[in-house]
Design a protein around this nucleic acid. Structure first.
Lengths: 252, 252
DNA sequence: AGGTGGTGAGTTTGGTGATCTTCATCGCGG
DNA sequence: CCGCGATGAAGATCACCAAACTCACCACCT
């Protein structure tokens, strides 16, 4: 019934977490329950008082969490009638936290294709802008990320991190705030694609090669070259995503 | 100097004392104070208890507001030390509410140039995707928006709304969730640019022409034509933004 | 007599304020 | 110079009150 104690919040996982950090945990717990379709889109959430019991916290915390969720478009609270889950295309899917919450469920949103499509559109342009605007520091950072990619032969973890970093810095180096903001989406997509399919080694080698060429093009302020490299990078990304999806489909 | 002390929400200690959307109002009040640089980026906000008095609400409301602000990257609250305003490039500038809060201050963020640049990159691609994916309904909506643009000769208000609607529907019709999410940014930029410079009539006529051609291209599923039209539309947008900035510069 | 509409009780979120807890910081003393 | 406690501010809970929406019931009109 009232489920007592820890219903489902991860307050119990306190082994590493010394601090309570209650509100944050509750927020992600609710968000993930929404992403997992435990609360289907369009239908109402339980009443605030019920949520208190479900997650084992006070109403204040629940309310703060709901406000945050609402501010990101996941739910819509109407005065005196309740909180309902918004339709998915109202979600702020460009918000870093939202993407994080979606985590593994991201593939249920056919977002990966959209992100890849957006990357095909944006990254070549970003590379071109970066070619004329990147600071020495940014080029150095790119180079560092690239070297980390190159050197992390056996470490898929490290390779992924470096790849994500590379693209984030690239977008930053475009010195366009809109592009820069999209790095969280790319981050999420890369994380997934690279994680899901532990990309074949030869693909990785190709990727390292092209990334290196891009850095070189930026260094030379070669706009056309940079764009070209970005395009080739994305051809590889298309291949990787296809591989990842096939891998998932197979394991599924 | 802090000029006056009266930027806050309407505490209206008068008789009727209506208080429906307190939290929302407080949130935008704080957000706008931040945008107005009343709380400069990097420096700490007043203590929560002081904010209670400043905005005339209870601490709970202040805290919920701060959580929302934090969730959009405007501020960062550290446990027991205080809440500090984040650097501007950490803000979630693709969030519709944030854009709304920035409102007139948007020009202080040199965001308009960035958004225009992003549009130059994205809209042609979106138009191309729309050419192959737009539903009949979406094309009808675009046509409706276009007719409203055409027919609102003397009404700049109506023209602006229609223009914003047109571009929003166009991005929606690209059936790419990432592109679609950017409509809020475009909305804000258009709102500003069209509002600031009450665009010359001949520019408006050019715009109507090109928008109409774009609808036609979509109807014909002509990808190249759609892209071409989008490019020409953006050439006009560049001109409008330049005009708007010159107008502002002059009145300033 | 039956349907319509107003009313009032109950429910649920919005908002307030007091209280307790937990730590980061700072100053005092060993 | 270092640690240890006092202080103060944020995190969290609780108990209320206020307002508005729901729903059911009953009276009144046709």
């Amino acid at each position: 019934m009232e489920s007592e104690g820890q219903s489902r919040a991860e307050k119990s996982s306190s082994s590493s977490e010394r601090r309570p950090r209650v509100r944050r945990n509750v927020t992600v717990a609710i968000a993930q329950d929404i992403c997992a379709d435990r609360y289907p889109s369009g239908s109402p959430l339980p009443r605030e008082n019920d949520l208190c019991e479900l997650y084992g916290v006070s109403r204040t915390v629940i309310r703060e969490s709901l406000k945050v969720l609402e501010s990101k478009g996941l739910v819509r609270g109407k005065p005196r009638v309740g909180t309902t889950v918004c339709d998915r295309d109202e979600w702020n899917i460009l918000d870093a936290e939202v993407l994080e919450w979606m985590g593994p469920y991201i593939k249920d949103f056919d977002l990966l294709g959209c992100i890849l499509e957006a990357r095909r559109t944006i990254e070549p342009a970003a590379a071109e802008y970066a070619a004329e605007r990147a600071s020495a520091q940014e080029i150095a950072d790119l180079d560092k990320a690239w070297r980390q990619m190159r050197d992390s032969a056996g470490e898929p973890e490290s390779f992924t991190d470096a790849d994500v970093m590379f693209h984030t810095v690239l977008l930053t180096a475009s010195h366009n705030q809109v592009f820069r903001r999209l790095s969280s989406a790319i981050h999420a997509a890369l994380q997934y694609a690279l994680h899901a399919s532990n990309i074949a080694v030869e693909n990785r080698e190709d990727a390292v090669l092209v990334h290196g060429q891009l850095v070189e093009a930026l260094r030379m302020r070669d706009k056309a070259g940079a764009r070209e490299c970005a395009n080739r990078m994305l051809d590889l990304a298309v291949r990787d995503l296809a591989a990842a999806e096939k891998a998932i489909g197979r394991t599924k």
